[in-house]
Computed example of a mutant assay.
Amino acid sequence: MAETVYDFSLRTLQGEAFPLAALRGRPLLIVNTASQCGFTPQYAGLQALQVTWGGQDGGLVIIGVPSNDFGNQEPGEAAAIGAFCESNYGVTFAMMEKSHVKGAQAHPLFQWLGEQAGFLGKPRWNFYKYLTRRDGSLAEWFSSKTAPESQKLQRAIEAVI
């Protein structure tokens, strides 16, 4: 039974293992993403968060997890997703392979995040955001409507940094 976010592993867009245990002690912002969504421009705000908070020693780690679970808004394969993020938004934060984030097929990480966040915190659309503390516990979750540059999210990041 997983106790912290660091108990999970993902795979990068290149298919390489990405164990979250390697990030132990760092706060994480995990976001389910999609390339053809009305919220897709949030990639720019997430990249700005990466620049602002990621470069510090022990700074924030942003992890994008593409998903096609909502409105078939992430139909592309790994190479296309990576190229889209880089060319349109200059994304340098970690992007994982496309995964399910809802229902019985949801990646175990998103099942755990949903349990920690409660019923309303389970992903209901693209660009749900999950902020974890340095101890690997969930600090707060944010719906798609909460922009990366919002004061609410900025304050929450400051609190875990």
Rank of each mutant, 00 (worst) to 15 (best):
156 A>R: 10
131 L>N: 06
161 I>K: 14
121 G>T: 07
22 A>G: 13
98 K>A: 05
76 G>C: 03
110 F>S: 02
51 V>P: 08
71 G>P: 09
149 E>L: 06
149 E>V: 06
149 E>C: 04
51 V>F: 09
83 A>G: 13
105 Q>L: 01
79 A>V: 15
124 R>Y: 00
140 E>T: 12
103 G>W: 00
18 F>K: 12
104 A>Y: 01
37 C>K: 03
7 D>Y: 09
43 Y>G: 04
100 H>I: 00
85 C>G: 09
10 L>I: 09
77 E>I: 04
22 A>P: 09
37 C>D: 12
63 I>R: 11
112 W>C: 06
93 F>M: 09
145 K>E: 03
118 G>A: 03
107 H>C: 04
106 A>I: 02
99 S>Q: 12
43 Y>R: 07
92 T>E: 14
4 T>R: 07
48 A>W: 12
92 T>D: 10
72 N>P: 02
79 A>T: 14
128 Y>C: 03
148 P>C: 06
141 W>R: 08
24 R>I: 06
126 N>H: 03
76 G>T: 03
132 T>Y: 10
31 V>S: 05
154 Q>P: 07
109 L>Q: 01
4 T>Q: 11
79 A>W: 08
88 N>S: 13
1 M>V: 11
66 P>D: 10
53 W>R: 15
65 V>Y: 00
95 M>I: 14
21 A>D: 12
91 V>K: 05
105 Q>I: 00
99 S>W: 03
11 R>L: 13
63 I>E: 14
88 N>K: 14
112 W>E: 03
10 L>H: 10
118 G>Q: 04
142 F>N: 04
148 P>T: 07
146 T>I: 13
92 T>H: 11
3 E>R: 11
93 F>V: 09
130 Y>G: 02
148 P>V: 05
82 G>K: 13
